[in-house]
Design a protein around this nucleic acid. Structure first.
Length: 733
DNA sequence: GCACCCATGC
């Protein structure tokens, strides 16, 4: 800013200097073109102020253009230069609008545009509109953009090719594809940009088929595509997951000799990885003459999404620049593939490395990993971090926080976050409804659903899944029936298989097995494995052999390796005393090497997540845990605790073995560890990967009473809040 | 009295 402290030279001086101007003029003005740093630019600026050349409008606008558009300059500085120009002309105004339109704050383009209308002696021209419309596209500001469109027509620019092209992009960006297409069709002499804009609008607007069709039409009309066209076409292939066509496009590019630049190569990489051919991508990547952060991120994402974490890690380690996006790819890949611990490990590494700063995407993925693990300490820390860093609490983050707190058993905290914000979108409402539902507060969940209607937020498919789940957890059969039957006619949400699965669960659990079966028979879509799974679960609960066999048959047809189906069916046989069937199934499981998913419980203590498997003694404090279990057994006997053997799968013969196995269920280990290591005032929060068994449920109830401790246990389906010998699920689960 | 524009990838 030192340039600005140079005293302004009066206009009088300027006229005396003017004699020498032709020479100086040329020298200084060519110095502007040679600038390659903001320091140099400021020096020229100072010289122009000293010599008075700055007061020549053309020279000033040349300096201003360099300050507004060159990569080394900042917009704030350009704004300063602009404000010093005594009489800005339309050209200068246009440059300022243009600079803001492609900046991080395109809204400023609107502000400047209004200023222009107010202060500039000329009306906006054919150059002004493309910039303002570009800003509207960036912001998806459909009303402002439409108004600007109208204004352009009034000023008789309605047929300007540049303006029409930018309008095609604008309407496309706003999701109004039919308007974009109408304008496109009305362009009398379309150039390649017109085609590109329309193809891009289709590709970005979830209509990749239309994008490819338009490209073929362009080809038929002998319009030569350029590299931008091909980027859009490849993007459409990636969206359509059409590897075959994608490969054809790559060979087409070569055949037609279309210039291959970095962007186009990245688009090819992206198409290959999205369409599932990381090998093709790797081959291309290896041959690339230059790579940027996108090339690296695409490869990283490709490997991470297909679950090849070693390869992904290899790419990550080799990356020259590790932007936050790269960290996010790794974290979200782990989180979305059921590896929350690994996700948190990466987050930890990110924190320690201090190379990049977590952004909203990082926090959303990390919160979701915390939710999966029940890691409330870290989740709460992230909440504090968000507040401390002043990160904007948008709906996405709010729903993640609500979900995290609810899944970590802190329903009150979830409600607190929920009610602390003003703006709630459908996902925030849905997350809260789900939270109430999983904690057995079905009535409250339903109340919230109606509160959501009053807030004029339209429920979607997710909302209905959560409402129906809430009904199922609390046994609200009549309410469930009403929601299910109203969702399409009243709310316009078409039931999907997941809704049918919920409804079958609601009916089945409550014993309406025939009605559940009728519902399945009436389905217009093919029942999924989860639908049959819900029916099978209900049959196991109500010991219905006939329907249970049918359900497990159907389930195994869809998922031949689903051990859960066999386990449930064997439970039905065991409970009804059909031992020969039980041993048949046992043999089947042995022969097909189907392994039961091992039960695993985790508990967070001081920010560390500890995991326990059935009967494991790997924990460093193992001996303390086992003596605590002995202590519990002694204290529970007098209050009537008897290990209930029928809850065990009939896969262990010896009775004493059964009892031993029961006492060693992972949730018992976790609860014992909680008693050993947490302060008496702290609730014991346990997350279990499978459904809790009846024996452990009874065990937890009694521990909560005898030790006067709150135990919050989340199993695969819901929460059990044990307090004073009772459970929040009211034994309905 | 000059000149500036539209379309591309995570």
């Amino acid at each position: 800013m030192e340039a600005l402290s140079v005293p302004l030279i009066s206009l009088q001086n300027f006229s005396t200097l003017n004699n020498n101007l032709p020479f100086r003029n040329h020298q200084i003005l060519s110095a502007i073109d040679k600038c390659s740093s903001s320091k140099q630019l400021k020096e020229v600026h100072a010289r122009m102020l000293r010599t008075g050349l700055f007061f020549d409008p053309f020279s000033a606008s040349k300096l201003f253009t360099a300050s507004a558009l060159s990569s080394f300059s900042t917009l704030d500085y350009a704004r300063n230069v602009f404000d010093q120009i005594p009489q800005a002309n339309l050209y200068t105004w246009n440059i300022l609008i243009r600079a803001y339109a492609s900046s991080s704050d395109p809204f400023q383009s609107f502000v400047i545009f209004l200023d222009l209308l107010d202060k500039c002696e000329d009306l906006p021209n054919n150059f002004t509109f493309p910039f303002v419309i570009k800003a509207a596209s960036e912001l998806k500001a459909s009303r402002v953009g439409t108004a600007v469109h109208g204004m352009a027509i009034k000023l008789s620019f309605g047929m300007d090719l540049y303006i029409l092209n930018s309008l095609v992009r604008f309407y496309g960006a706003c999701g109004d594809l039919s308007m974009a297409e109408r304008l496109f069709k009305g362009i009398s002499c379309k150039d390649v940009v017109s085609w590109n804009s329309m193809i891009s609008a289709f590709a970005q607007g979830n209509c990749p088929e239309d994008a490819l069709e338009l490209f073929l039409k362009m080809e038929r009309e002998n319009v030569m595509p350029n590299s931008v066209t091909m980027v859009c076409v490849l993007s459409a292939c990636a969206k359509k997951l059409d590897l075959e066509f994608g490969r054809w496009v790559c060979s087409y590019i070569e055949r037609k000799g279309i210039k291959m630049d970095l962007t186009l190569r990245n688009a090819m990489l992206d198409m290959y990885t999205k369409c599932g051919s990381v090998d093709d991508a790797q081959k291309l990547f290896d041959e690339m003459p230059e790579r940027d952060v996108f090339s690296w991120t695409i490869m990283l994402d490709g490997y991470a999404k297909m679950g090849d974490y070693d390869a992904a890690r290899g790419v990550f380690n080799a990356m020259p620049v590790k932007e936050i996006a790269a960290w996010n790819v790794l974290i979200s890949a782990y989180e979305q593939n059921g590896k929350p611990k690994e996700a948190l490990a990466i987050f930890n590494e990110l924190q320690l490395s201090k190379i990049a700063k977590p952004d909203e995407v990082t926090l959303v993925s990390t919160l979701s990993a915390c939710a999966q693990l029940g890691a409330i300490d870290l989740g709460g820390w992230i909440h504090v971090y968000i507040k401390r860093e002043g990160i904007d609490l948008n709906c996405h983050l709010i729903s993640s926080l609500v979900d995290m707190y609810a899944k970590c058993g802190a329903l009150e905290k979830a409600l607190e976050v929920f009610y602390s914000v003003e703006e709630r979108d459908v996902y925030v409402w849905s997350a809260m409804i789900a939270g109430l539902g999983m904690h057995g507060r079905g009535k409250a969940a339903i109340d919230l659903f109606f509160e959501m209607q009053e807030a004029k937020v339209k429920p979607n498919s997710v909302t209905f899944t959560n409402v129906l789940c809430a009904c199922s957890h609390t046994g609200l059969v009549d309410e469930g029936r009403v929601f299910f039957h109203e969702m399409e006619p009243v709310y316009g949400v078409v039931p999907e298989t997941k809704h049918y699965a919920c409804m079958v669960d609601i009916l089945g659990r409550a014993g309406f097995l025939e009605e559940a079966m009728e519902l399945i028979n009436e389905m217009s879509i093919t029942p999924s494995a989860s639908v049959w799974g819900a029916l099978l679960g209900a049959c196991s609960l109500h010991m219905n052999v006939e329907l249970g066999e049918l359900a497990s048959d159907q389930l195994l047809k869809l998922e031949p390796r689903n051990h859960g189906a066999i386990v449930l069916l064997s439970n039905i046989y065991a409970k009804t005393g059909r031992w020969e069937k039980v041993s048949e199934l046992r043999k089947l499981m042995r022969d097909t090497e189907l392994k039961k998913e091992p039960g695993c419980s985790s508990i967070e203590v001081n920010g560390n997540v500890h995991e326990f498997l059935v009967g494991d003694n790997l924990h460093p404090l193992s001996s303390n845990i086992y003596s605590k279990l002995d202590d519990i057994a002694t204290k529970l006997k007098p209050v009537g605790y008897e290990p209930n053997k029928s809850h065990l799968l009939q896969l262990i013969e010896e009775d004493d073995l059964k009892e031993q196995a029961l006492s060693l269920h992972s949730e018992k280990l976790a609860i014992a560890f909680g008693l050993v290591s947490l302060a008496p005032s702290q609730p014991i929060r346990v997350v279990k990967n499978l459904r809790i068994c009846g024996d452990c449920h009874e065990f937890a109830k009694l521990v909560s009473r005898v030790y006067d401790r709150d135990i919050l246990l989340r199993d695969r389906y819901r929460f059990h809040h044990f307090r004073d010998g009772h459970c929040s699920c009211m034994d309905y689960w």
